[in-house]
């Protein structure tokens, strides 16, 4: 298990290298840069600016410096567009925000999706089941950028229950809608998947064995059926986390949460190389960490996988 974790941690290095090198050259080869503006700077000033950011050096030297600074100083460099701020500053300010509602969104996805799926499975072919499945298919088709405006329309504009944006230090009213808008479609996916796998597990021979032992239904479900029924859901959560990270960019922009998504989009507009690259690395690291966590959780549940690690 420890070896496995270590091995996985090591694979993150080539992944990040590919990401960095690829994005670095992609950005630099593209026309334009952070200092191209409508009225061009005088050559001397331009030279000055470029020197200040080390951009007069050959590309590979810049790349090397960049990587060195990250590895040795955990320094993602200064922002090219936001005066007097480093990428580290921006991340330190925005990332906790994104992470906070992202966390609650994941909680929403799992804490609602899984029980809904289980209830539908246990009440198979009942009105509950049909309603749930129908609603789930429906909400799976609504992406966050359609759902978010609808939520604001209802909860802010019509009923005035929740603020339509902002963060305000992370008070719960400001977290609810971002978390729901981000998670609903995946919550529905989780519910459907859990329902399907629970139905399958309940038909498994070992559940009949558990029944033959005289265990009450409650124990059968909690002790015997739950773990195996959750395994497909865990696998499903891998891509879901990637989608949610993507979605968080949108949520940050739409709800003006002050999360890093806005900085990312701003960075793209202003061609803020270091900002884009730093955030891209952050997003990838997050993806990686979440996936590793899922895999370890999977192994923890499934003894077959555990012993093969």
């Amino acid at each position: 298990m420890f070896n496995y974790t270590l091995r996985r941690l090591l694979t993150v290095i080539p992944t990040l290298l590919v990401l960095i090198v690829f994005s670095f050259y992609l950005m630099r080869l593209a026309p334009g840069g952070p200092f191209t503006s409508e009225k061009p700077l005088p050559p001397a000033v331009m030279q000055n600016v470029l020197e200040r950011y080390g951009m007069d050096q050959p590309l590979y030297v810049q790349l090397w410096t960049y990587i060195k600074n990250i590895v040795f100083h955990f320094d993602f460099g200064p922002s090219f567009a936001q005066k007097d701020r480093t990428v580290n500053d921006v991340i330190a300010q925005g990332f906790p925000v994104t992470l906070t509602y992202g966390f609650w969104s994941a909680v929403f996805v799992l804490v609602l999706g899984i029980p809904l799926g289980i209830v539908a499975a246990l009440r198979h072919n009942s009105i509950w089941d049909y309603t749930m499945t129908g609603l789930a298919i429906f909400s799976q088709i609504f992406p966050n950028f359609v759902l978010a405006p609808i939520l604001v329309l209802l909860f802010t504009l019509s009923w005035g229950l929740l603020p339509g944006g902002g963060w305000n230090g992370g008070q719960w009213e400001y977290i609810v809608m971002p978390a729901i808008a981000l998670g609903t479609s995946y919550m529905a996916g989780v519910a459907r998947l859990t329902r399907g796998s629970m139905l399958e597990v309940l038909n498994a021979p070992f559940i009949l064995t558990a029944r033959a032992k005289g265990l009450p239904e409650r124990v059968i479900i909690w002790r015997h059926a739950l773990k195996p029924a959750l395994l497909p859901t865990l696998t499903y959560m891998g891509p879901v986390f990637v989608y949610m990270i993507t979605g968080s960019v949108f949520i940050d922009v739409f709800f003006s949460t002050g999360g890093i998504g806005q900085d990312f989009i701003d960075g793209a507009y202003s061609r803020d190389y270091s900002m884009l690259l730093g955030l891209a690395i952050l997003y990838s690291l997050l993806t990686f960490a979440l996936n590793l966590m899922l895999d370890l959780l999977y192994a923890w549940i499934d003894p077959k996988v555990r012993s093969s690690l």
């Binding site: 498994a204 021979p205 070992f206 009949l208 064995t209 558990a210 033959a212 002790r223 015997h224 773990k227 195996p228 549940i301 499934d302 003894p303 077959k304």
Partner: peptide, 16 residues
Amino acid sequence: IALIFQDPMSSLNPYM
């Protein structure tokens, strides 16, 4: 009354 099932491969819970 105890029941012994046909297929020992699938009648034990693989996760316990």
